[in-house]
Simulated assay, not measured.
Amino acid sequence: MTSMTIRNLDEKLKSRLRIRAAQHGKSMEDEARDILRAALAQESNPSKNLAEIIAERFKGLGGVDLPVVPREGVRKPIDFSE
């Protein structure tokens, strides 16, 4: 098993964890472990990719019609041999 140290924990948060652990009859460490386990068990895998999420968010704003810019042909490479 791996151990972990949590630094700079707010005193109010630590107190709430201590109270919650006491209410459940556990140590603070056991309670923190259970909280982490429960939070990470609800892992969500988005079914959409980022582009779909962005498009959905801005869909209500309407689209933008951009002019079609004609493409140029392939340019002739510069000859540096001279």
Rank of each mutant, 00 (worst) to 15 (best):
S3P: 05
S3Q: 15
M4L: 15
M4V: 15
T5G: 04
T5H: 08
R7Q: 10
N8Q: 11
N8C: 06
L9H: 02
L9W: 06
L9E: 02
D10K: 03
D10W: 01
D10N: 08
E11V: 09
E11T: 10
K12Q: 10
K12N: 09
K12V: 09
L13N: 01
L13Y: 02
L13T: 02
K14W: 01
K14I: 00
S15T: 09
S15L: 05
S15W: 01
R16S: 04
R16D: 00
R16G: 02
R16W: 00
L17H: 01
L17P: 01
L17Q: 00
L17T: 00
R18H: 01
R18P: 00
R18N: 00
I19S: 01
I19D: 04
R20H: 03
R20A: 05
R20E: 00
A21W: 04
A22P: 01
A22L: 08
A22G: 06
A22Q: 11
Q23P: 01
H24W: 04
G25C: 07
G25K: 12
G25Q: 10
K26I: 05
K26R: 10
K26N: 05
S27I: 07
S27G: 07
S27M: 04
M28I: 12
M28V: 13
E29Y: 08
E29F: 07
D30F: 05
D30R: 08
D30N: 09
E31V: 05
E31W: 09
E31K: 08
E31I: 06
A32S: 07
A32M: 09
A32R: 04
A32Y: 06
R33F: 04
R33H: 05
R33P: 02
R33I: 06
D34S: 06
D34C: 06
I35P: 02
I35M: 10
I35L: 12
L36H: 02
L36K: 05
L36P: 03
R37N: 03
R37P: 01
R37V: 09
R37E: 10
R37W: 06
A38V: 07
A38F: 08
A38T: 10
A38Y: 06
A38D: 14
A39W: 03
A39V: 06
A39R: 09
L40Q: 04
L40K: 02
L40G: 02
A41R: 15
A41E: 15
Q42E: 14
Q42V: 08
Q42C: 08
E43S: 13
S44E: 09
S44V: 12
N45F: 14
S47Q: 14
S47L: 15
S47M: 12
K48C: 09
K48R: 11
K48P: 01
K48A: 13
N49T: 14
N49A: 08
L50F: 13
L50G: 06
A51M: 10
A51N: 14
A51G: 11
E52G: 13
E52H: 07
I53M: 13
I53A: 14
I53V: 14
I53W: 12
I54M: 11
A55L: 12
A55K: 10
E56L: 11
E56D: 15
R57C: 10
R57Q: 13
R57L: 15
R57Y: 15
F58C: 14
K59E: 14
K59M: 13
K59P: 07
K59I: 12
